[in-house]
Amino acid sequence: MIRRIPWWIAGILMALLLLFTFSVFGGNRPLGASTYVPYFSGILFNLSPEKYPYLKEVHFAGAWEGVMLLGALTGGFITSVFITKSFRFSIMPTGWKKYKNSSVSSRLIWSFVSGFFLILGARLAGGCTSGHFLSGVAQTAVSSMIFGAVVLISVIITGKIFYKSEANDD
């Protein structure tokens, strides 16, 4: 069995999954993957939707994506164990060691901070790669094209500034 599918098979499959999710046979809604985070924050910190209007706003979308997330974790886990055989516990990505530094605490602190702002940014914009870039641009939504352009520029500028242009020797 092949261990990895090429980008074009992944792109075709993702398009089919998007269409199924949009269709009346699937979810009859866009695919999204960032609303579940504040939804889970509400559950974990026991915040009442009566007191926090945002939780009321995301009550259904958060639940839908929460169930989907459980599926994604299951699908990802099974695939990593049986197909890609990439399941292993690790803290330091090879690419971080190569283009940033070898410090575990540096990676973990940056992970926490970037995870925090990743969700804050997605919630400010009203979506993420899935909700805006995939689902939104497929609907030719102007909002999602603005988001996509800003993210593209911001990602590339950050990559240029944050990482080294030459690989570290190891």
Binding site: A33, S34, V37, L69, A72, L73, T74, G75, G76, F77, S80, T84, S86, F87, R88, F89, S90, P93, G95, W96, W110, S111, V113, S114, G115, F116, F117, L118, I119, L120, G121, A122, R123, L124, A125, G126, C128, T129, S130, I146, F147, V150, V151, L152, I153, S154, V155, I156, I157, T158, G159, F162
Partner: peptide, 26 residues
Amino acid sequence: GGAIFGISMAILGKCPGTGPVSIAEG
């Protein structure tokens, strides 16, 4: 939001959709 999201995505190396899947592989 998009600017903050892009900066964070470049540093974390994940987006909210791919993050959980990489947690699932350890």
